[in-house]
Nucleic acid binder design. Structure first.
Lengths: 331, 331
DNA sequence: TTGAAAGCGCTAACAC
DNA sequence: GTGTTAGCGCTTTCAA
């Protein structure tokens, strides 16, 4: 293993000098020694030991993004943005899967307390009030879902804007009988989204019947029963969903019960996936700036690690309607 | 921050004693001091500093699974298996996204050289001969794709068995005109899979026409042209694909050109995704033991880190045909 | 049974 | 400009 010492001996200087040359900010050395040290380092293929460095610096130079469900369709984009931002910040971005239950939260916190990483990025709650626990432990973190039950340290998408656009889009297409499928009815985010959607329509003079509001899992389970409700001729002419996966599975289940999309009913999703384009019919949806979210979250976390005060942020970048085949003008 | 020292002072003993009690294997301390130390540790909520520990032990207690494409559909299962195995082994499993190009490989290697992790799990090659470079650098690693161009240190699925089953399944259903869609035609894995498939059929007296062999990306791009070829009445009665995504998109594209699945043509995929069940029609496929692969890979990597010699392994666990709607008996 | 001492590889005052 | 020194928190002989 080649250490600072190896280089120092080879160049006949002290380790501290080598350290200064290699990592120091102020370079108070003769150009000559500098050169010799740098060449030696290169020749020996020197790799600073991150452990020793971190131990001394009391900073690991790494952060972690923790995920409960690694197959979550919005993660790849968030990760892409986060990865780019981490690279720019010169920090190492680890990803991690965590289980459920209290131990999951504890082991995440331990990661920081043990010094392995400097901060945590996370989305889904391992359990209620995890935010509070992180706060108490003094662990730098950013939540990617700002609607938890605790005072949020979050970098979130502008979902308000997203559902506003979604509602207006349907209204603009002339729909007047509109349905909505949200996710977990109790969660704050779900409530916000649903209310935004409904209020936007209300302001345009469109009332949504209580019978036309449903809730499914983000992944679109439980859409069969909704599909069954929609067989009736009393059905809405369009349905907005809080996730593209709901739209996708509902589409499938509607097909099964003989309701055609978009001829009989229009469908619009939320978030975008490559898949949506190949669906039959392809799915109209609201694309959210997830990549920016990932990048902003990392920047925010780095700020916090550097000692800055955290400020909840809504990601710049506008939601965008991706028009495909599943949504047509009301007849 | 609470360290060994904090506990030592509180208990009026030396740090080395505390260290021994908390981590040491041989417990050569009076039950009394042991108790006192453990209680103090618990009360103070002591967390050993992994950095210091690793520095001293020359082992980080962490491994990394590196992925090029975080949206790869087979990863979640592999990760699940790997995660469970890592937990069991008491090591920390990090995931990581890497870019393309030479720097990607170098930064992975650096991760180990810097001491952040003890070994690497990876699948897709950052670039050719990366395996060789890892070998040269003395970095413990396991490749999840044993068909790279270099002497493989791999834990692979039994793809031979998988494609054999796939071929036999179609033959058993009475199909005699069969097509095949592989992935990158040049890669060793692709060649092996294709050859296994074709040989299996040949042994049963079924020849596959050269015109009925195609290649697409794993994600199923470029299936339009295949679909166009299949409009002709000369088409095979069944097609096997080397990925479920190919099957899925081909299915979609066939629909577009008016070829019905499975009435006009049967389709079978490779690997399984939740999605496959909701496809229209749902997709028959070969499910591979990816979870076991992840677990085995981690175990193998841990062996290697502990100094064991590496031995290429094929994952136990049998491929399984998941029968759904896209494949029917030949008429 | 317990403690003293050395050192893992690195950094940062401070002295020369 | 460069070296000396003193740790970061931990483990592990070795001595008491």
């Amino acid at each position: 293993m080649v250490t600072l010492r190896t280089i120092a001996e080879r160049c006949g200087v002290d380790v501290s000098t080598v350290s200064k040359v290699i990592h120091g900010r102020e370079i108070r050395v003769t150009e000559d020694t500098r050169q010799r040290i740098m060449t030696a380092a290169k020749e020996l293929n020197y790799r600073p030991n991150a452990l020793a460095r971190s131990l001394r610096l009391r900073r690991s130079g790494a952060i972690v993004m923790a995920m409960r469900d690694t197959s979550n369709i919005v993660y790849p984009e968030i990760i892409e943005g986060a990865h780019a931002a981490a690279e720019k910040a010169g920090t190492c971005l680890f990803l991690m899967k965590y289980g459920s239950g209290e131990t999951a939260g504890a082991s995440l916190i331990a990661l920081v307390q043990e010094g392995r990483v400097d901060g945590i990025l996370w989305d889904d709650l391992p359990y209620k009030s995890f935010s509070q626990e992180l706060l108490d432990a003094g662990v730098p973190f950013v939540c990617l879902n700002g609607y938890s039950d605790v005072e949020a340290q979050s970098v979130t998408l502008d979902d308000r804007q997203g559902f506003l656009k979604q509602a207006n889009y349907l209204a603009d297409l002339g729909h007047r009988k509109i349905g909505f499928i949200g996710v977990e009815p109790q969660s704050n985010i779900s409530i916000l989204c649903r209310e935004t959607f409904l209020n936007t329509l209300r302001e345009r003079g469109i009332a949504v019947s209580e019978n036309h509001i449903w809730h499914c899992s983000f992944e679109g389970r439980d859409t069969e029963s909704v599909a069954r409700c929609l067989v009736s001729e009393q059905r809405p002419t369009a349905i907005a969903t809080a996730s593209i996966l709901i739209a996708k599975r509902l589409c499938h289940n509607l097909h099964k019960v003989g309701v055609r999309v978009p001829e009989d009913i229009s469908l619009i999703g939320y978030h975008d996936v490559p898949d949506a384009e190949w669906n039959e019919p392809s799915l109209t949806t609201v694309k959210m700036p997830s990549r920016e979210q990932g990048a902003t979250a990392v920047e925010s976390l780095m700020d916090q690690i550097a000692g800055g005060r955290f400020q909840a942020r809504i990601v710049d970048g506008k939601p965008e309607i991706i028009e495909r085949e599943s949504c047509i003008r009301a007849v």
